[in-house]
Simulated scan of single mutants.
Amino acid sequence: SQTLEATGIADDIERSGRYQPLRLRLYRMDREMQRREMRALGASPDYVVGSVHALTEDGSLLIASASGSQLGPLASGAGQVIFVIGAQKIVSDVATGMRRIYEYCYPLEDARARRAYGVPSGVNNILIVNKVMTPSRVTAIIVKERLGF
Rank of each mutant, 00 (worst) to 15 (best):
Ile142Lys: 09
Thr56Pro: 13
Ala6Ser: 14
Ala113Ser: 12
Met98Phe: 12
Met133His: 06
Ser76Leu: 15
Ala116Met: 14
Ser1Trp: 08
Leu22Ile: 08
Arg146Ala: 07
Arg35Glu: 07
Glu57Ser: 07
Leu55Glu: 01
Arg35Thr: 03
Val132Leu: 07
Gly59Trp: 05
Glu14His: 07
Arg39Gly: 01
Leu55Asn: 02
Gly42Phe: 08
Ile126His: 02
Glu103Ala: 12
Met33Ser: 09
Gly50Pro: 05
Val49Gln: 06
Arg31Leu: 03
Tyr19Ser: 10
Pro73Lys: 00
Gly77Ser: 09
Ser60Cys: 14
Thr7Asn: 03
Gly72Ile: 04
Leu61Met: 11
Asn130Val: 10
Tyr117Val: 09
Gly122Lys: 02
Ile9His: 05
Leu55Trp: 01
Gly86Glu: 11
Ser60Arg: 03
Asn130Asp: 13
Leu61Thr: 00
Val119His: 08
Gly8Gln: 05
Lys89His: 06
Arg100His: 13
Ala64His: 05
Glu14Asn: 12
Arg146Asn: 10
Leu61His: 00
Glu37Ala: 13
Gln2Tyr: 03
Gly8Ala: 04
His53Ala: 00
Glu37Gly: 04
Tyr19Ile: 14
Tyr117Ala: 11
Thr7Ile: 11
Asp11Phe: 13
Ser67His: 06
Asp58Gly: 02
Leu61Ile: 02
Glu103Trp: 10
Gln70Val: 10
Tyr27Thr: 08
Arg31Ala: 01
